[in-house]
Design a protein around this nucleic acid. Structure first.
Length: 595
RNA sequence: GUCCCUGUAGCUUAAUGGAUAGAGCAACUCCCUUCUAAGGAGUAGGUUAGAGGUUCGAAUCCUCUCAGGGACACCA
């Protein structure tokens, strides 16, 4: 049941009856921040009043002097329609002219019941059935340790995958590894030098060695700019199929992948496909041919470029030395994905520093006819910076994700000790709790905020364990489970049980209703998060729900109340637990039965 | 220089053009012989960077100024 749609239609009909058909009334219907303003509210009367001037339109009587009067008129019409279905219990007009809708108890508890019946499906839908979404995320660069900079893309991207799947879409999560390009020229160049000077063995290299070599290379470029030319030559050799270059490249890929797999394991992140840039090496010629067919490819300063109308800088496909660019590989990827999956959306979860790149990329993809308008989306998250400025691999200024996760787990363990929780758990269980709490905290600290804003990396911030933080939600879940565990057989399973047995005999109080009223919006929040590519909406929702529940928990007893009151409270606890679990699941955060 | 993004309490932040700008951290005061205190209640803290404008209504939209960040063809 899509309440928003139903009520929205009813409002439109009411407007028609009042003679507003000839105007386009652009009203909103939303969930007010404050429960005191109902479960839904609309500004339709205020918007419509602007259009309606009593002097020019006599279809309304002269009593309508302000938006509030108009709101009352609209409600008169609405009541006739809304009484047809039992979702809305009350509609009221409030100054300056809002119309507030209150959900009926019948609807509230039908939803609560549904949450415990459909369980892990609660909040999901089938709206995406038959549609495909490709999400390009994480995409770390080979030969560099997994830095904090890739965390955002990885966990926001994973959350988007989870959300779209939950809504019934077929999701292709693609880890577009940075495993091709001039950077490998730099590494090859440096490795060849070191093999000579330090008797370095390629087989023994570690991921940290690769990072060090990359940093050293850029230090040496400062002294000797010719090295840059040398690096490009090495990349060209790689592209031309030089055997030694390929052998070393493969070793670098293997070292990195081993590393990444461990990190992804820790984070609980998985992909449907891992098609790195190198996957598109043999598909680039096709793109060049397409561009030639369209007659849009140009020679400029020895390079092959495409001029984009309205964009000053041309897009470069092939460099003057004949080596390819990542722009070209990205185009090949779009062509490939379109052909292979025919997606409704291709989402790129990549940092905001690449806005211009994607602007060019999307424009050229359209020029080449690879996709129709509106299918390509760049979800540009803000950059992670250190206190001193940009975190740059080249300058050796990186924070390794693994160190962050280890620190998070350590702090979680410490806090548990200090707070005296988890003391009834075995050492093994405690370790497990610390791991899930620590990693959940890191994920949540990022997912709770708007992806667009830049982040200054701060250990204390990313490792927050109290207040609006991951552990708070996990704790609330564990608290619910703890209560429920003390009540063996939970009795009620049918709608009739609740509607006929509990509700007629027990009038829920405000705090109880507040929890139910929030849970009723879960499905909408998930949809909105998908639509606006903002997992933070789900995080905020879960936090709000947890706050309400914890407040309730501290004010009222659940167990020992007996009778219908206890049953209803247990029912709510069950629903809160299920909603938290489903929501955290979407964010890629694990829940704990005990902590 | 041009273009893009951001600016909310001491700090980190929330808020589809709506109602009293909502939280968390830090500070202070309370609440565990009661279902998990990684919790709850309360106090204090705001000229939403500044100035104009649009609107019945602006943190949100427009213009300018200031501050920070990013991008601007041979890195990805």
């Amino acid at each position: 049941m899509d309440i928003k749609k139903e009520v929205g239609e009813a409002i439109k009909k009411a407007l028609e009856e009042l003679g507003f058909s000839k105007f386009k009334i652009d009203f909103s219907l939303e969930q007010p921040e404050n429960l005191a303003y109902g479960d839904y509210a609309t500004n339709v009367a205020m918007v419509a009043f602007k259009r309606f001037r009593p002097k020019t339109d006599r279809s309304l009587d002269e009593k309508v002097k302000n938006p509030l009067d108009l709101a009352r008129k609209i409600i008169e019409k609405l009541n006739k329609q809304l009484s047809a279905f039992s979702i809305i219990a009350k509609v009221e007009a409030v100054p300056p002219g809002f119309i507030n809708f209150y959900l009926s108890q019948d609807y509230l508890f039908t939803t609560i019941l549904r949450s415990i019946v459909v369980k892990e499906k609660f909040g999901g839908s089938q709206m995406g059935k038959g549609k495909t979404v490709v999400i390009d995320y994480s995409s770390p660069n080979i030969a560099k340790p997994f830095g904090i900079g890739h965390l955002r893309s990885t966990i926001i991207g994973q959350a988007l995958c989870n959300i779209y799947s939950f809504l019934g879409y077929r999701v292709i999560g693609d880890n577009h590894l940075g495993d091709w390009g001039t950077q490998f020229g730099a590494l090859l160049c440096q490795i060849k030098l070191k093999i000579k000077s330090e008797k370095l063995k390629v087989e023994d290299l570690t991921i940290n060695d690769l990072e060090r070599l990359y940093v050293e290379f850029h230090q040496e470029v400062e002294k000797n700019p010719d090295l840059e030319v040398e690096a490009r030559k090495w990349f060209k050799r790689l592209e031309d199929g030089d055997e030694e270059a390929e052998r070393i490249w493969q070793i670098m890929v293997d070292i990195s992948m081993k590393e990444f797999k461990r990190i992804y394991g820790l984070l609980g992140v998985s992909f449907d496909v891992v098609l790195g840039e190198s996957f598109y090496v043999d598909k680039m010629a096709g793109v060049i041919a397409d561009a030639q067919d369209k007659g849009i490819i140009k020679e400029s300063r020895g390079a092959k470029v495409i001029n984009i109308p309205g964009v000053e800088t041309p897009a470069m496909l092939v460099k003057s030395d004949g080596a390819t660019t990542y722009f070209l590989r990205d185009l090949a990827a779009i062509k490939y994905r379109e052909k292979k999956w025919r997606p409704l959306l291709m989402i790129y979860e990549v940092g905001a520093d690449q806005i211009f790149h994607f602007h060019q990329l999307f424009a050229v993809a359209r020029m080449l006819g690879y996709l129709s308008e509106g299918k390509l989306i760049h979800v540009a998250h803000g950059m992670v910076r250190g206190l001193g400025g940009k975190l740059s691999t080249r300058l050796g200024k990186t924070i390794h994700l693994e160190a962050v996760l280890a620190e998070a787990i350590g702090r979680a363990e410490e806090l548990a000790k200090k707070a005296g929780v988890s003391k009834n758990l075995s050492l093994r269980e405690r370790k497990k709790v610390a791991k899930i709490v620590g990693i959940g905290a890191v994920k949540y600290s990022d997912l709770k905020q708007n992806p667009k804003t830049d982040v200054i990396f701060d250990w204390d911030k990313i490792l927050t364990l109290e207040g609006n933080a991951g552990p708070y939600l996990q704790y609330t879940y564990a608290r619910c489970k703890s209560v429920l565990s003390k009540k063996e057989n939970l009795f009620l399973s049918t709608r009739d049980d609740v509607m006929k047995i509990i509700l007629p005999k027990y009038q829920p109080n405000f705090d109880e209703l507040a929890i139910a009223r929030i849970i009723c919006h879960f499905e909408e929040v998930v949809k909105e998060a998908a639509k606006s590519f903002s997992p933070n909406l789900i995080a905020n929702f879960l936090y709000d729900l947890s706050q309400k529940y914890n407040n309730f928990y501290n004010q009222h007893r659940i167990l020992g109340e007996g009778g219908k009151k206890e049953q209803l409270r247990l029912l709510l606890t069950l629903a809160v637990a299920q909603t938290l679990k489903n929501g955290l699941n979407l964010l890629g955060i694990d829940v704990l039965e005990k902590m």
